[in-house]
Amino acid sequence: MSSKQSDSGNRIKSLTVYSLLCAFCIVCGYIEFLIPTAAIAPGVKLGISNSVALVLLIKGDIKGAFAVNITRILLSALLFGSPFSLLFSFCAGVISTVVCAVLIKMPKLSPIGVSVAGAVCHNTVQIAIASFIFGKGVWFYLPVLILSGVICGTAIGLLGIVLTEKIKSDF
């Protein structure tokens, strides 16, 4: 009986933690949504919320990373986006999370590399979807997005490492 109780206690705990992480992600996403980047490179975002999934991956919680990422993408689209933007962010989000989840297992790659790979994947998938909808012309934007993916990915990778060091407890 007691083990059952602690089991349900754990479930409640992890549900709460994941919910909080989702909320954090959505707020981060909203703040980034408010920062205009159109002048420098339209559509480019830092993606601070990705650091949450990265920390979860570093801690070995792959399920949690998927849960948080997918939930936040769906909720963000519901709150600030459209079905159209959902298509973009959902496909890109899922694929880049899969890539990150695979790469995090590689001992020769640090979280920075994982994050960079994820960011570039995310951007490339979005361009690919955009090319289906708007035509091939959008591929011209790919180099900009690769470059921004490298920069943002490195930043998020560093953030993820620092956060993982600071957060000692497991979720």
Binding site: M106, S110, V144
Partner: peptide, 18 residues
């Protein structure tokens, strides 16, 4: 923090974008 493959990956991507 940076490992060798990170540098290779980042270098490759920068080169590709260039």
């Amino acid at each position: 923090k940076l490992k060798r493959f990170d540098i290779i990956l980042i270098g490759f991507l920068l080169f590709a974008s260039l």
